[in-house]
Structures are given as structure tokens and as C-alpha cells.
Design a protein around this nucleic acid. Sequence first.
DNA 1: TTGTAATTTAATCAATCGTTTGATTTAATA
DNA 2: TATTAAATCAAACGATTGATTAAATTACAA
Lengths: 219, 219
Amino acid sequence: MTTQGTPLPRKAGRRSRADNAEVRSQLLAAARSLFAKHGYAAVSTRAVADAAGANPAMIHYYFRNKEGLYEAMLADTFKPLVERLGSLMAAPDLGPAPIRRVLELYMRTLGANPWMPPLILREVVAGDGRLRDWFIRQFASPGSGLLTRLIEREQAAGHLRADLNPTLAALSLVSLAVFPFAAMPVASEVFGMRVKDDYLDRLISHTERLFMQGTGQKP
Amino acid sequence: MTTQGTPLPRKAGRRSRADNAEVRSQLLAAARSLFAKHGYAAVSTRAVADAAGANPAMIHYYFRNKEGLYEAMLADTFKPLVERLGSLMAAPDLGPAPIRRVLELYMRTLGANPWMPPLILREVVAGDGRLRDWFIRQFASPGSGLLTRLIEREQAAGHLRADLNPTLAALSLVSLAVFPFAAMPVASEVFGMRVKDDYLDRLISHTERLFMQGTGQKP
DNA sequence: TTGTAATTTAATCAATCGTTTGATTTAATA
DNA sequence: TATTAAATCAAACGATTGATTAAATTACAA
């Protein structure tokens, strides 16, 4: 499971061939698409190489093995979002409507990168370790204490309904931020949804509203 | 994907050997546990047979192939819940607090059968068909129109906050019913939750409360 | 141009996959 | 007891898996 071996591209001091790292990034893109769609075990390294228009040996060359490829793909995919979320929630003085801004950043990112929700869900659900620990660490720093504390602060400020347990509210918020996107293909059939242009806006507003005081009025 | 072949246990007119179907049910149990924990592609038919203390050929004998085993396992696992949910929501005259009763049935069942949430999530997320269609059909009848209409009825009766779109509320309800259970192992680490005896009750109440008017009081 | 390291190809390794075969055992029927 | 069918087993099938290598090719510094 853990990669205990030597590093690979032995100190690429020289750039060559098509200015490059192009094959590497194409492998990452192919891996992201295939792993998101079919899951880790169902995707062969040959399939990734084919989809990237490369040779299986290139995976060994750049990433040592299948796990190394998967790990690099996850980091490449989620690092930007995790960093932006962290800096947003860790800010000493929150701007206006921080909960909504977290929701917006989260949902718009997932909406724009459809491969993210499946990857998140698979990592969350996967019983075996693989990258579960790495993934937990990624989302633990900005997602756990920070989100719970953000909710507490917003409750204290009177911006959020106070009758909710902060920890459960944080868990609910994440649930509502992730699941609907991963379930979109199915939900559109099950619930007969017509995913129109304003769907994302309506979903964000709806989710935010759940944590606010109900008005009793129709939306 | 579709099994186009002949049926297998050729008309079991005779019962034999340990009164039987025991191997069959043990294969189903092993498949349920392993597929839930590791996913379809990551589990070999040999592993299932070993865990069931049976011979690999018995899978072919009872279920024709790996997909047949998986399909039978899904049906065996979810049919009871689906039926109970359907009859609860389709009742002409709902009893008191039907939303809470749906939540209770759903969550307590998932809580008592830890393999269900991973299976649901995998089926929802799986891009390829396999049993996605079957699964959608299972949850479409009781889960779609019925749940949405139930929410509308409860809104009309003044039992549910009226400022929520019924379809989005239905999707949110399902999200909150499924995701926290599947995420439990991770969430307990990320959110520092201590899953105590009353955890399920508190989660149910919290989720129900989200769809009610906020009181502004601490819980 | 030549030397050298980076990159890519083709080929191959042992291991494991899902599946099937053919023979055997068990138990009910005639 | 003889017959028959269901159930089970050990063994092996061909195909594919992840991984690795040796050799060929490329690009750039000297």
C-alpha cells in the first residue's frame, strides 16, 4: 500500500521533447476521468495509458505504480479546493455570509468539476485504507474544527439558527454539499429533475435556507 | 450486462443435503459483506467463495456469474426496506409525523445494517450501468414521486416549513439520510465525533429539525 | 558532431482474474 | 436395490492484470 521505493524521474534536470511533462499531465487527466467513472479497482493501468495515448511504462516511469498514479491524481485534483476552503474559513475576520460563501465555493467547484464528487464519495466509503488517511488529512484541517467553529461563530452572531448542534450541522452541511452532486445522474431520473441553468443557484439557496430560520412563505 | 443465458438450478424439485440453500445464502452473505466493504471490481469470486466456505463453482451454479451474484445480493438486501418505505409513504391517510417516521425507518435500518450505505452510494455513484437501472427502479417508485408528494402534503398541513422547494427538499432528505451513515467512519475522525448510544436519536432529531421552523433556542 | 541523460517503445514476467469442465458425492425416488 | 437428479468439488482453462526490463529514440550541452 505504502510506496516505500525510490523516487522516479531521477532529478529531471533537463526538459526535453515537446517541452513536456505533457505525457505526465495527460496520464493524470486520464486517470482522473477513469478512476472517477469506474473506481480504482475497475480501471487497469493499461486503460489509463491508452486513454492518455501513452505507454504503460510511462506510469511506472512517472508514478512508480498504480497507487502512485492514483495518489498524484488525487493531490492534483483536490489541493486547490482544499487550500481555498481553508483560507476562507480560517480568516480571522469573516466577511459577510461566510456559510453561503463556503457553500458557493464548494458547490460551484464540484459543479464545474464533475469528477470530484465520485472521487470524494469513493474515498469516504472505501473501507480499506489506500488514500483514505491522506484524504482525511486533507479535509480534516479545513473541514473539521474550522467548519464547526465557523458554524458556532455564525450562530453566536445570530446569522444561523441556534437550535442546531454545531457538529451535526457541519456534518449535514457537508452531506448536502457533496451528495446531491454525486447523485445528480440518478436523482435527475428518480426525482424527475430537469437540470437547468439556474439549478446550481437554486440548490445553493435551498441548502443555505435549511440552516436559516424558516419564513413560512413559499420560496 | 444482461444475463441472456439459461436459468441455473434446473427446477429444484428435490431438496437434498443439509436441507439446503444454505450454501446459497452463505454466498449471498459473504458477497454482501465483501462488496460493501471493497466494491464490486475489487472483490474476486474466489474471495467470495472462500469467505462463504464454498467452492467457486457454486457461484456459477447458483448465480450463473459474478454479476448474477451481485444482483441477487442487492435484491436480497434492499427489497424489505424498499417495500416498507413504499407502503409507509403510499398510505392514503398518513399517521402523525410521517416525515419523522420515514426518517426513523430509513436511518434505523441503515444503522442496523452497516453494509447498506456503502452499497447505496456505490450504486448511485457508479457511472456504468450494471445494476444502476435496477437500483433506480427500486428507489424510484417509493422514493421519488411519493417522497416529494409526501413533503408537499406535509407543507400544506403546516407541519413542514413552506419555504422549501419540495423536490429539493426530497433530495436533501435523502442526502441527509444516507451520507452521514456512509461517512460515519471518516466523520468520526474528521469531526471528532464520539458515536455514543444516543447518536442515532440525536441525528434523527437534528435532521427532522432542519425541515421544521427554527426555534432560535439551543437544542 | 559527439556524449549523455531523459524519454519512449516493445516485450515479457509472474500472478490473478472469471469461468468452466468433468468427476464425485448426496439424497430422494422407483 | 437400482436409478436419477441435485449439489459439490478439485483442477484447470484462456485472458488479463500490475509491474518491470532491455533496448531504441530523442533532445540538448559541450
